[in-house]
Design a protein around this nucleic acid. Structure first.
Length: 931
DNA sequence: GCAAGGTC
């Protein structure tokens, strides 16, 4: 069997299709992994790296005395499967294979992925022949050629990739741990460091510092307005920007009649059609549609997975000759772009535009399938962008008419330029950048024009702009930081670590503090040079000028030097970062005592507390950090002088909460409104007395409240009591919601909050209410019949359980009763103890005791006590009668018949109804009782 | 719990 291993599923599929020719391919899934088989060949796709490198055992504890961060530098590393299902299938097939071909991507990382696959194969099959197919496009010609000319894995190339892996892990993990520990940060708040992320962060910090230290300088611009045939236009002074005020004033004063046209120049300007999309170009264009880099990539990947566009991770801006542009046009003419396709076909340029980069792995991003807006929904605009860009690259250049008018006003020279789109060219199909005409009137040299206005404007030089995501990705690409597949993820990572925020991007204080510490003590890691050095070392490994191990050893030596400098300063570094970040957590003065309020974190919970604690207990609770870590933003509340709060979670937009105290007040407004004797006046008085929450109010002493808001003692007592009642109700509601959440999954338009508010409207406020509810009310809240029944049954179960517990039934017996179907107190009282004992397996003595407790609790008549001895005797008596077996005995117990005596006194009609035996049967048993 | 690189 010939096993072919590709880098990803989609490639495996296409290779199979090409190699199979007309043969039929059978596709099956094993453990969620696709396998394509034809003839004696099986093709499987990996998922990129299916193993990852990690440290050998013993290094998991960050705070270990024996394995501090520095020890990671010399720690051993191993490879561990990250995709066990794929690894398993590869190895299972390898055992049976007599030829294995590695067909991963044709680049360094692809060679490494191939080597990883090779190692998996060798681990289970030492003899099988393993070769390597290299192809730079997935076309029949390339693939067939690659497989009939298969060569060997390039272990040097793979080793270069391994060196990168190891160096990245050693530096990243050791420095991340070191700096996190120094700044006492753990869990969600670790401070990460890495070869790509740290220089990227440093660029953003650097830009911010440039902006801060920028000193604006004034300059002056001089222009005049004139008119021809009723059309006004303006002209700039030929000096451009005046940096000297006096010169500007002189020129202004000298701008006088007559204003004469000295010169008119007309020309044309070519406006080149854009080049094909690589990943960066695509992200930049998508940013104009308002998409973040990560979002644009997510949508592109989605479109790719569904066959609408080609592979979106590419560095290529030149269509390979093998790409069939004609058939793509055919496909697109089946979409709503038919008109544009026809236009392109009629006006097509000789050869498509091309950029500078031609890489081997994937073609530029282009449309691959037809789609409609209905099919794609939100993703449509990205598809449209790819389509229009593709069409633009086949379209002719646009052309502009340009006109330049030179003028003199007395002796001062002025100039005006205009342009008009002459040939729309590619702009016909690529409608994103607006092409505005600025048309000048027709004038002749020597002509005199009126001066309508002379304008002297003072302006200021501007600092450089902050990076937008797409600009940052462009710069990263120029510096060689990251890859086409990872750049956008790096930015997301920096946001997730709360190093950067906003759009355009600016550093947080943490981001800045970490960058500054690293620059001061481990500058290697904040410079893009580390990447270029690593890359040249990798080049050396590829050509055998160096070995992988030598490169790694060198890197280890360097990292030790870094730690030599870092370790003695660990206290200092920690202090620096903590001081700066404390500031970031401080949001302004406490409304009660005036000391600083600070964001506090404890596990997943976070809140705003007063630095005056425990003297001042003022606090505001915040949503759990599962919704995002709380950080302060630049905005400050005008009323409370507090910074606004924003919650930042990985992979989603920050949640702007605004001023936390304003939030608290609005939120409490609804709660206050539930208190019967609350009036708007009292509420205002409470606020002025700095009593912001119902919780605070409920805790108050009536005397103190009396003084604080000027009400009678009786009113104060009443208010406090009502507040406590409302809070108890809210607590019950929240328990009820939590309970409901376990059984009612959220759906579109049926959030848990929505369901709960519907419950409240129907008067359902607690789990207890749920247990007594009418199922129709639950269905009103959007629950299905089944969900409603389940919810009610579960509520009955829980409330009964709590009730029985309160009565004094211990948990173990309680569980047995409920499992046997005796749910609540009434069930225990409604059945004969013997029956309960038989069904639940709880001994009769215990059952009797519990039943007695229940009867006492419910104020019901105490049932007759039955002993174990009595029961056993009765049992023997009954079983001795003809026709009474164990199952019948159970039915008799149900009817309260436990011995001969109770049988003889039983009423057959009643008993039959309860236990399900026929009347005749019971009469028959009665008759058999010996006299 | 660390990196960066693949891919979903």
């Amino acid at each position: 069997m010939h096993l072919i291993i590709a880098e990803k599923n989609i490639v495996a599929n296409r290779i199979a299709q090409i190699l199979a020719g007309k043969e039929k391919i059978s596709q099956k899934k094993e453990g969620g992994v696709n396998l394509y088989q034809f003839g004696d060949t099986a093709t499987i796709g990996l998922r990129g790296h299916v193993v990852e490198i990690d440290f050998v055992e013993g290094y998991t504890n960050w705070r270990s005395e024996t394995h501090p961060p520095r020890s990671l530098i010399d720690a051993g590393v191993l490879k561990r499967p990250t995709e066990p299902a794929i690894v398993k299938l590869v190895q299972k097939l390898s055992k049976k294979a007599d030829r294995v071909t590695i067909a991963t991507d044709f680049d360094t990382e692809g060679e490494l992925i191939g080597k990883e696959a090779f190692e998996l194969v060798r681990a289970v099959n030492q003899k099988v022949k393993v070769d390597r197919a290299r192809f730079s496009a997935i076309t029949p010609e390339e693939i067939n050629h690659a497989f009939s000319n298969a060569s060997d894995i390039d272990f040097d190339l793979a080793a270069a990739g391994e060196a990168r892996q190891i160096v990245d892990l050693l530096w990243g993990a050791s420095l991340t741990r070191f700096i996190s520990l120094a700044a006492r940060r753990g869990g969600n708040n670790i401070l990460s460091v890495g070869r790509v992320q740290s220089p990227t962060l440093a660029m953003i910090v650097d830009r911010e510092r440039e902006i801060e230290s920028f000193i604006p300088e004034p300059y002056w611009e001089l222009s005049l307005d004139t008119e021809k045939d009723g059309e006004t236009f303006s002209a700039r002074h030929i000096n451009g920007k005046f940096t000297d005020k006096e010169q500007a004033d002189t020129a202004y004063a000298a701008t006088k009649k007559p204003l004469k046209v000295t010169d008119v120049k007309e020309g044309t300007r070519a406006d080149k059609a854009p080049t094909p999309f690589d990943t960066t170009g695509f992200i930049v264009a998508a940013a104009r549609l308002g998409l973040s880099a990560a979002n644009a990539m997510r949508i592109a990947e989605d479109l790719y997975m569904n066959g609408y566009i080609s592979y979106p991770r590419t560095d290529n801006t030149i269509y390979p000759p093998s790409l069939n542009l004609e058939s793509i046009l055919d496909t697109l003419s089946k979409t709503q772009f038919k008109k544009e396709v026809d236009w392109v076909r009629k006006n097509r340029r000789k050869t498509p535009t091309q950029g500078k980069k031609s890489s081997t792995d994937h073609p530029p991003i282009h449309p691959a399938g037809a789609a409609t807006p209905e099919q794609l929904g939100e993703n449509w605009k990205v598809y449209e962008l790819v389509v229009r860009r593709f069409l633009a690259t086949l379209s002719p250049d646009a052309e502009w008419m340009t006109m330049k008018i030179n003028l003199t006003a007395s002796k001062e020279g002025y100039t005006s330029t205009g342009s008009r789109l002459k040939e729309a060219g590619w702009r016909t199909v690529y409608t994103y950048s607006d092409a505005k005409d600025s048309i000048l009137p027709v004038v002749k040299p020597g002509e005199e024009l009126p001066i309508k206005n002379v304008n002297l404007e003072e302006k200021q030089t501007q600092p450089p702009p902050r990076y937008s995501q797409s600009k940052l990705i462009q710069v990263m690409e120029e510096l060689g930081l990251g890859t086409k597949s990872t750049r956008h993820e790096v930015i997301q990572k920096l946001v997730g670590r709360k190093y950067i925020e906003g759009n355009p991007l600016r550093p947080t204080l943490v981001g800045r503090a970490v960058t500054e510490s690293l620059e001061g003590h481990a500058s290697e890691i904040t410079s893009p040079e580390m990447t270029s050095t690593l890359e040249s070392a990798m080049e050396d490994i590829k050509v055998k000028k160096q070995s992988r191990d030598l490169v790694v050893t060198d890197s280890r030596v360097m990292l030790h030097k870094v730690f030599d400098a870092l370790e003695p300063n660990s206290e200092l570094i920690g202090r620096e970062i903590m001081d700066q970040t404390d500031e970031e957590l401080t949001i302004g003065p406490c409304p009660i005592c005036g000391k600083d309020l600070r964001i506090r974190r404890k596990g997943v919970s976070q809140f705003i507390g007063c630095t005056g604690y425990p003297d001042c207990t003022f606090n505001i609770s915040l949503p759990s950090s599962m919704w995002g870590g709380a950080v302060r933003t630049k905005a400050v509340c005008e009323i409370h002088n507090l910074n606004h709060i924003s919650l930042i979670a990985k992979g989603s937009r920050p949640w702007e909460m605004g001023c936390p105290l304003c939030q608290l007040i609005t939120q409490q407004k609804d709660i206050f409104a539930m208190i019967p004797s609350m009036t708007e006046k009292i509420r205002e008085d409470l606020l002025s007395a700095k009593i912001y929450s119902a919780f605070e109010l409920g805790k108050m002493d009536p005397e103190a409240l009396m003084k604080a808001i000027g009400v009678t003692k009786k009113a104060a007592e009443q208010l406090i009591k009502e507040t406590l009642d409302v809070m108890a109700l809210l607590k019950k509601r929240s328990e009820c919601k939590k309970f409901m959440k376990q059984f009612v999954p959220p759906k579109r338009g049926r959030s848990h909050t929505k369901v709960m508010s519907s419950f409240t409207a129907s008067g359902i406020n607690s789990i207890d209410d749920l247990s007594k509810v009418c199922v129709e009310d639950l269905k009103k809240a959007g629950l299905t019949e089944e969900e409603a029944n389940t919810l009610k049954a579960e509520a009955v179960l829980l409330t009964s359980k709590n009730q029985l517990k309160e009565i004094g039934v211990p948990t173990t017996s309680l569980r047995k009763y409920q499992e046997a179907g005796f749910i609540g107190p009434e069930d225990l009282l409604g059945s004969h103890p013997a029956y309960i004992s038989l069904k639940s397996g709880v001994s009769i003595d215990t059952v009797s005791k519990h039943v007695a407790l229940v009867a006492q609790y419910l104020n019901k008549e105490q049932p007759v006590k039955i002993t174990k001895k009595h029961l056993e005797k009765g049992r023997e008596e009954l079983l001795s009668l003809k026709g009474i077996s164990e199952p019948v005995l159970e039915q008799l117990y149900c009817a309260g018949i436990i011995d001969l005596k109770s049988l003889s006194t039983a009423n057959p009609d009643k008993a039959a109804k309860i236990c399900g035996l026929s009347k005749e049967k019971i009469k028959q048993f009665k008759a058999a009782v010996p006299v």
